[in-house]
Design a protein around this nucleic acid. Structure first.
Lengths: 311, 311
DNA sequence: AGTTCGATATGAGTATTGTTCATGTAAGCA
DNA sequence: TGCTTACATGAACAATACTCATATCGAACT
């Protein structure tokens, strides 16, 4: 009689809709089509005899029934994950070594908290963060100096397996009150007359230069700074413009310290991936680290979207 | 990577296997074939890369991995049920009236505790137990005197909807040391020379008489008693034989007060069903009462099996 | 108003996966 | 050693989840 055939899939769906704020965005996160999400939600609502999502509102609002089911999802899904983790430990053991190399300056912002959550559930894994900027971190991987690399360039290489983390937007930063702040988004020529403030990395590693300015033939003067705060300080004091990931500047935007604009009409989007040795790809503690980072990032960082590029 | 596609279905399966003590028994409870259960379990084990059930042992033993997943099931499934109940309340309201009529003397044994658990989750429903033995309780249902009837006879009647509760075995009771106790099971003629002690109901309501003794032309003398303990006392003091549901006599068997034997090689099995007015069948508080009773009974009563008879 | 754009809905077709049916195999018990 | 009970297996079938292509809807902007 009360044969409501609800499944974990439905809970994950509802959670994704709530977190992503819409069916379409949820579909991307779940690696499904928008149609699949719509159909699935509809059939669930039909089975329950109750609407779960207020379709009109944006971002999509859950109904009272939807919120009750979401509460169930929040209670149950972590338990499921924990159980699967325990099973993985039963299978492969709960110890391991995980030396992480990062090729991106701002990545520490989200990597450190993610590592903290990870440590809680895999206390047996020895976590290490390799210091210093690495020119070719993938080499470290193959030389067994590192076990996991965070990179923005998932070009296939022998013996290396990539997994996508997320896509994020690079925002152009202007001092408050700057003339360009009147525009909704910036074009390559808007950078021409300004100094570009960047981390100390080669030009071909800068997405803004490589994918936007260079193709347009714009070559602004550059000035380098080591730290994110230093870059922001230089922008705020009108020494030039910069481009940083949305998540890295969100706190400064809130305080009005600098102003951000998309680069190009659709924005400049970049992605992060992790690389591991293919031989290690099956290890549970490694796979779960990647899951943890991804989950943690989507929960913590603003303006993420799923990665699209296939290695 | 860690894409273990586990679903609530799997948890319910594992719980059924653990409770029923075997794949075949679990299949019956889930209203599936044994084959389906075997396939499903196998695919789950393959997905996890771990065996969950020790097939050799009887009753089927869970492995460490199986026990971990079972723990998850015990934690998660009640939360799911609670959520579905809340949704049902959102949909249909949380109040109602539920007057229960019972046509079986021993049913109070399990009905009262089940009503107690039910009261906890549906405090808004007014529960009433109609007293006295009813000749035709279905009539009460149609006259709006009762809202739910427990019966062993689900013959279709207009305006009445039946739902199966469970099947149970009627055991013949002998005093300890009785000659018949040497047999593994009793045959109709074994009853011929003994007084049959029963509740005060017409003969055609006694399964033993109707389905076993009458067809064999055996007509033993009868003696009636109102209470279960009285019947047991009479058997123990060698005034005759009786037949009662296995669950009703289990505590007395443990203490060796009486001895029980199956009736016929395969035992005499009876079933209980509930009847509600078809107009009410959709009401959430009613449907959930039936679920509660069924769950509660299987958890509490020994030797149950799913009902087979279709109304 | 009309147009455009982003988001959701829908219907038909396909793919996947769950279930049954009909057997086969292994282990426990007279 | 047969008999019985429980589980496994493979092929056929059924259910259902997903995608593709397209329609509809609503808000924002001329």
């Amino acid at each position: 009689m009360n044969n409501t055939h609800i499944e974990l899939r439905h809970l994950r769906l509802l959670q994704a809709v709530a977190e992503a704020g819409g069916l379409t965005a949820a579909a991307e996160r779940l690696h499904l089509t928008q149609s699949a999400v719509s159909h699935q939600l509809k059939s669930l609502e039909a089975a329950l005899g109750l609407p779960l999502v207020e379709r009109a509102a944006r971002p999509a609002q859950l109904t009272a029934a939807g919120r009750r089911l979401l509460a169930l999802a929040h209670a149950a899904l972590p338990q499921v994950d924990a159980a699967l983790r325990d099973l993985a430990k039963l299978k492969d053991g709960d110890a391991g070594e995980l030396r992480i190399a990062v090729e991106c300056h701002t990545c520490y912002d989200w990597l450190m908290p993610a590592m903290d959550s990870y440590r809680d559930v895999w206390p047996g894994v020895e976590l290490d963060l390799l210091g210093g900027f690495q020119a070719d971190p993938i080499a470290l991987l193959l030389e067994q100096q590192a076990d996991l690399v965070v990179t923005s360039d998932p070009t296939p290489r022998g013996g290396v397996t990539y997994a996508p983390l997320f896509g994020f937007e690079m925002l152009a930063l202007l001092p408050p009150g700057h003339t360009l702040a009147t525009k909704k988004w910036l074009l390559p020529r808007d950078f021409a007359e300004h100094t570009l403030i960047t981390y100390p990395v080669p030009e071909d590693r800068l997405d803004l230069v490589r994918r936007v300015l260079a193709p347009a033939g714009v070559k602004p003067p550059r000035r380098e700074a080591q730290l994110t705060v230093a870059i922001l300080q230089l922008v705020a004091s009108r020494r030039g413009l910069a481009a940083l990931p949305a998540w890295a500047v969100a706190p400064y935007l809130e305080r009005g310290y600098v102003v951000a604009r998309p680069i190009g009409k659709h924005g400049l989007w970049a992605e992060l991936h992790v690389a591991v040795r293919s031989a290690d790809a099956g290890r549970a503690y490694l796979a779960d680290f990647i899951d943890t980072v991804r989950r943690d990032s989507f929960a913590r960082l603003p303006g993420l979207r799923p990665a699209i590029i296939q290695p």
